[in-house]
Design a protein around this nucleic acid. Structure first.
Lengths: 194, 194
DNA sequence: AGCGAAGCGGATAGGCTTTCCACTTCACCC
DNA sequence: GGGTGAAGTGGAAAGCCTATCCGCTTCGCT
């Protein structure tokens, strides 16, 4: 995705070299600032840290949500790809393993993810690259698990993602949250008997 | 917990009649304003609606969290009392029914509750009347259900509350959230078999 | 009726996000 | 190598927010 060596056919990016440099500075500064999952970072502070003006920030990322999305875009890609690496596992195990990865990702980003989800009232174009990608990646896993009878059939992938995300928003000692994730995942399987 | 009918020994409240009236006006206005669970209401707007100045608002409720807490204090009381009315049900059923009530309460208050929980990093004095009360009310229910073997033993009431609250934060059609609550509650029972 | 103090409204400080405009700096072309 | 137009820039400004402060009003009691 790093468009640099385009000597002639410069398609969408790579306008001016200094502009590109600033874009990078902003991204780096933002990543540093958001590293602490509980810190509240303002746009102004990102600009300050990056050593650029507000205009530069907002020119590169039209708003707060866009910046946040850019911050973890590659991580989301990685998760989507991880959905395909279901080696020698059963469909149920594969889904569960993937959901755990997703949980870890969400938990590490907590309020960042929450902020993003807030803007995503079905069909937000911002998430056609984010959420929609995850949905597309997870759908086959869920379908396979449901076909194998390991997961209750009355849920779709969006619901499952919502549940995992919700559990990831729980604060506190990971040792206390982990059993809750386990409970939620168990619940997806449905009850075997009274 | 509702201190009102103190005709003579007025210990902490009931200073001046107009002040008490204003307190009531604020509470009423705030309830109206927060009725829509998705509206974002500012302190200034509450003051405006109530027809009082900022000073009056902040005098009665030192900050936003305190106002929110006052808003639903009586509902929390009701829920706590509901925990005792476990008629002819099994311990597991009683707990589940009570958690559903709690879920409904949370879901109706969504971001309001989320905002409050945000300030509650273990032992926040603000919640010694709110969360702690719910914890105390729910603990026996959980203990009974665990003793009956209906609920997995490695969870305490705080964790269960966190899970229910998390599920209640999920937005969208209730018909889509309801199965998720069911899944979460099922998960609390633990798996019966692979 | 008078008076002290409790209570009041509105202005204010300091933050935030986002927009805007006059100036700077780059990249290209002669 | 230098001129030029547009892309890019910084910082100020508008409009929100929460929370505080101060001089005036109004209550309740004598």
């Amino acid at each position: 995705m790093t468009t640099e060596p385009t000597p002639k056919p410069l398609p969408p990016a790579a306008r001016r070299t200094d502009a590109e440099r600033n874009r990078a500075k902003i991204l780096t500064a933002a990543r540093e600032a958001f590293a602490d999952p509980d810190a509240e970072v303002s746009m102004a502070e990102v600009a300050r840290r990056a050593g650029v003006g507000m205009a530069t920030l907002y020119r590169n990322y039209p708003g707060r949500p866009e910046l946040l999305q850019a911050l973890y875009a590659d991580e989301v890609d990685a998760i989507c790809q991880a959905a395909e690496a279901a080696d020698g596992q059963s469909p149920g195990e594969a889904l569960q393993a993937w959901l755990r990865q997703l949980f870890t990702f969400f938990a590490g980003k907590r309020h960042l993810a929450a902020e993003l989800l807030k803007h995503t009232d079905r069909g937000d174009p911002l998430f056609d690259g984010g959420r929609a990608g995850v949905v597309a990646a997870g759908a086959p896993l869920l379908a396979a698990a449901q076909a194998a009878g390991t997961i209750r059939g009355d849920l779709d992938i969006e619901q499952v993602l919502d549940l995992v995300h919700a559990v990831a928003t729980i604060r506190g000692d990971p040792a206390r949250v982990q059993p809750l994730l386990q409970a939620a995942l168990d619940g997806l399987r449905g009850l075997k008997a009274g």
